[in-house]
């Protein structure tokens, strides 16, 4: 397994980048605790995590795509339409389990098409998933849904509803699910063959292919996995607000997802970063959003602050891991 060690660069560099983010998080957290009245309460901290749990789950899906030197911009659209389809089917009287199975199948098919386009047609991932997000949203909206906003009616009180709004020993179920997905993703990436392949591909796709890594099937797997996790995030979202608004497919949410992934130190050039990076990034963004909401900062100003922090993070990243003119990849955007 050591053959697939993530990179030739010394490990302390990544630790350093992650430490910077952890330090910023701690400072921001402490700052808010001191200056804001209702910040440092158990319930607020829980709500802090709960509010970003969905973002975090999406971030986990995105992280494994980015580590393999890809990106999945269709993740939000996929989540929105597949879960909306599930709700619509359930509202039409279908057993909830069957509706979930069909919705999941829809999500996975979209992921599969993504993977095929990237792996076999060789369309750049940015593009394939961008266009696929638009196409998938349009197709499902036109063919399956009769409204932008689909309410959760059937099964609204049973176990299904619990997924997004239940609690285990006082901890919101969405937070628990976030934790479980993070743990599973960690095991997948670090202790399974496909997971190691993803790191190898992210580090150097050509070398990975030369050494016999099944690059194309692994890429397909990544996007199918991403779709599946996104579907789960969507279920959490829908069951917590009792509806699914398909228009989030057109929102900036996917940029927020990239934000939590990149800010924790997962480089867009692939092969770098761990699940811990996503957790750190999620925590920082959660803290910021929570604090700013308590301070009643306008949403637009929040976007600016978030973006500036991301900008600082990638500037620091480029200073810590400078790109070399002689070795950087042509056409790496």
């Amino acid at each position: 397994m050591s053959l697939f060690a993530a990179s030739g660069k010394p490990a302390w560099r990544y630790v350093q980048q992650e430490n910077i983010v952890i330090a910023i998080t701690a400072i921001v957290f402490l700052g808010f605790s001191v200056t804001l009245n209702n910040f440092l309460t158990t319930s607020n901290v829980l709500s802090l995590i709960q509010n970003v749990a969905i973002l975090g789950i999406l971030g986990l899906a995105m992280a494994q795509a980015i580590i393999g030197r890809g990106i999945d911009l269709s993740i939000v659209a996929n989540m929105a339409v597949s879960v909306a389809a599930t709700l619509q089917l359930a509202n039409g009287g279908m057993p909830i389990a069957l509706a979930i199975a069909l919705g999941l199948a829809l999500a996975l098919v979209i992921g599969l098409i993504n993977g095929m386009l990237i792996a076999y047609v060789e369309i750049p991932a940015i593009f394939a998933t961008l266009a696929m997000g638009t196409a998938a949203y349009g197709f499902v909206r036109a063919a399956l849904l009769n409204d932008n906003l689909i309410y959760l009616k059937a099964g609204g009180d049973g176990w299904f509803k619990w997924i997004g709004s239940g609690q285990i020993v006082g901890i919101p179920s969405s937070v628990v699910l976030f934790g479980i997905v993070a743990a599973l993703m960690h095991v997948f990436l670090h202790h399974s063959l496909p997971g190691r392949f993803i790191y190898a591909m992210g580090d150097n796709p050509l070398a990975a292919r030369t050494t016999g890594v099944p690059v194309r099937p692994t890429i397909v797997l990544q996007y199918v996995l991403s779709a599946g996790v996104a579907f789960l995030a969507g279920i959490v979202m829908a069951t917590s607000v009792d509806s699914m608004e398909t228009r989030i497919a057109r929102s900036n949410l996917v940029y927020d997802v990239i934000l939590v992934v990149v800010i924790g130190g997962i480089g867009l050039s692939g092969g770098k970063g761990k699940i811990r990076s996503v957790l750190v990034g999620t925590l920082l963004i959660g803290t910021l959003l929570n604090g700013m909401t308590i301070m009643d900062v306008q949403y637009t100003l929040q976007s600016i602050i978030k973006s500036l922090i991301l900008l600082v993070a990638i500037i620091v990243d480029s200073l810590v891991n400078p790109r070399d003119e002689q070795t950087s990849q042509q056409g790496d955007i």
């Binding site: 607020n44 509010n51 607000v241 608004e245 228009r247 989030i248 929102s251 959003l289 909401t293 949403y299």
Partner: peptide, 17 residues
């Protein structure tokens, strides 16, 4: 922005605060 899930996130925090 007319988005229920965004409203949900904002309302949750406002309620806690």
């Amino acid at each position: 922005d007319w988005d229920a899930s965004k409203a949900h996130a904002i309302a949750t925090t406002v309620l806690k605060a």
